[in-house]
Design a protein around this nucleic acid. Structure first.
Lengths: 338, 338
DNA sequence: GTGAAAGCGCTAACAT
DNA sequence: ATGTTAGCGCTTTCAC
């Protein structure tokens, strides 16, 4: 079976390719019902399907969305990707997977690829940084619609984006500790170069201030959002010889790392220490130690981002619409009332 | 900044577009070094990048690989996807994410999309079934190179594929139980409609036979590869009032489900029951109960599959090369010597 | 209602 | 070494 083109259909129907094209794009104008029906029948018979690439060539829309993220193996991004893909499929778009391992070179390589006009739009996820700001600023010049996900940059404030209320989320979960009578609350933060780490730290401080609990810098430490980082951070806190009854880690992964060290010390959660995190990652139910956390609806993130880009593509206008997602606390019992 | 095309470059360099094209594709033949250098300089200045879609139009290769899988949120497929993407990137291909939720309609929708010739090749993952066989057989007619991953179908034996030695893996892990003096080994299998479930069951029986342990059908039960399925299956086995000292679940997820029930009964692993699984899924170290398992190198799967499709695309030949991956046992201490 | 023809941006014969 | 030209498969004026 050779590949059948619009020409073949035209020949078999004794019409011009223009007429076939009209029938195909069911513009009810410009083609008689009879001819149209006949053409459609022949198309079905020959199992003809118009070349998307030729179409893209003509109208400059390939129907492809580039999805840039650090690593699809991270469950958060997998969930986000599903949100993107589900919305894309519904609107007849398709989704290009672009793992960057958070490396600016890889990101730039993808950006260059996008500029070859293979994609109609782009969704971009990364921690903000100076070099990224510049890369993205360069990309803007290509006039391909794109949407930022949790990426903070003032110079890109006219780009559609989806954000999470990190500060509020942190404040809420720390307040939950306070409501359970905790006052000495340790904080293990993310890398201070990233905006969401800063915001979560702010939220922590805000909650303390609001409840008239003095901020103690000795109770805080910055780590790198990794499992091992959390493990080492809590170890360092203990070495400081300060007392605390609860720990707030700026993400769950560090939380689980901290938990491992706490267990190693022969202590228990929540009996000896209360522990709360951020992200609300989940595991099969048999794994018992779980952390009360701030849920970030990754799927919704992806869906909203996709919606935005596709809107920009179709309406051919780039309104800098910003969505801000509200945090939700998920209580999993890792807080003890004292 | 308007989008700059090959014409603009040609005009600015006072050459024809053909010359620009030659300079671009660094065919050192057909263009003088001087002109070439000049053209390349202008290209850089204008930040020109040739349209991939126009190129695809001409030479019929879009450089896109469709990756069809059930759900990217499943860590196994995320790992596989990384294998695919890393190899693709290295060879200047890009990877289209296609989640199907194992629904034939979704698969078929993607297959139809592929037939629009937007992709140069396809990697297809799914459990075999009659309707899929037919869909794939239909897809073969479009002459787009594709590679099957753990998909069993005799009628597609001339299609490149990557397989795993399921039977051998099952045999090895059951033999490990036997070496630890277990004789009454329960088996919780996958859905009997799928080839890998059948193969793992075969491996189990083979190991018993080889060690002269009589096969007892009462010790075996089929489930659905899900967490809850494993939970219910072990419950059903206990209800049969037969005795066993070890359990082999045909995948880890069922294994963890079974573990939950065993814990609920107040029993421990491996003290009261030894437990082994398949897939070797992993979690942060703080989660203590882990299952000795057969590792399936998902990343390698993806990499090999990508290598195969891309080979077919570039060489324009479809050699039905089959890769078969060897199993590796990962001991995590869930077996007790008795 | 339908056809002819231009053109989307590029590559590859074929000329010169 | 470089230019000219014919497509690739489609959409979209512009005629008729």
């Amino acid at each position: 079976m050779e590949k059948v083109t619009i020409k073949d259909i035209a020949r078999m129907c004794n019409v011009s390719i223009a007429t076939v094209s009209r029938a195909l794009n069911n513009s009810n104008k410009g083609v008689g019902q009879k001819t149209k029906d006949h053409i459609l029948t022949v198309i079905k018979e020959l199992n003809y399907s118009p070349s998307g690439i030729a179409r893209g060539m003509v109208n400059g829309n390939t129907g492809l969305i580039g999805l840039v993220l650090p690593d699809i193996r991270n469950p958060f991004f997998a969930e986000l990707a599903r949100g993107v893909e589900d919305y894309c499929t519904k609107t007849h778009y398709n989704c290009l997977l672009c793992n960057t391992d958070s490396k600016p070179e890889k990101e730039q390589a993808y950006i260059s690829f996008f500029q070859k006009r293979m994609v109609s739009g782009v969704i971009f996820t990364a921690q903000n940084s100076k070099v990224r700001n510049e890369n993205l600023y360069g990309f803007k010049k290509s006039h391909i619609p794109f949407c930022l996900v949790e990426y903070y940059c003032n110079a890109l404030s006219d780009v559609p984006a989806v954000y999470f209320k990190n500060k509020k989320g942190a404040r809420l979960i720390v307040e939950l500790l306070i409501k359970n009578n905790h006052k000495n609350i340790a904080f293990i933060g993310g890398p201070s170069s990233t905006q969401n780490a800063i915001d979560r730290f702010e939220g922590y401080k805000e909650a303390l201030a609001f409840h008239n609990i003095p901020f103690n810098k000795k109770l805080t430490i910055a780590a790198d959002y990794s499992y091992v980082g959390g493990y080492n951070a809590i170890k360092a806190l203990f070495a400081r010889n300060i007392s605390f009854t609860a720990v707030f880690t700026a993400n769950d992964l560090m939380g689980y790392g901290a938990m491992e060290y706490i267990h190693k010390k022969g202590k228990k959660i929540p009996d000896d220490y209360s522990l709360v995190g951020f992200d609300n990652i989940s595991f099969p139910a048999v794994f018992q130690p779980v952390i009360t956390s701030v849920e970030i609806p990754a799927y919704r993130f992806g869906k909203l981002a996709a919606k935005k880009v596709i809107h920009c593509i179709e309406k051919k206008e780039v309104i800098p619409l910003i969505d801000v997602i509200e945090p939700v606390i998920v209580d999993k019992g890792s807080i003890k009332k004292i």
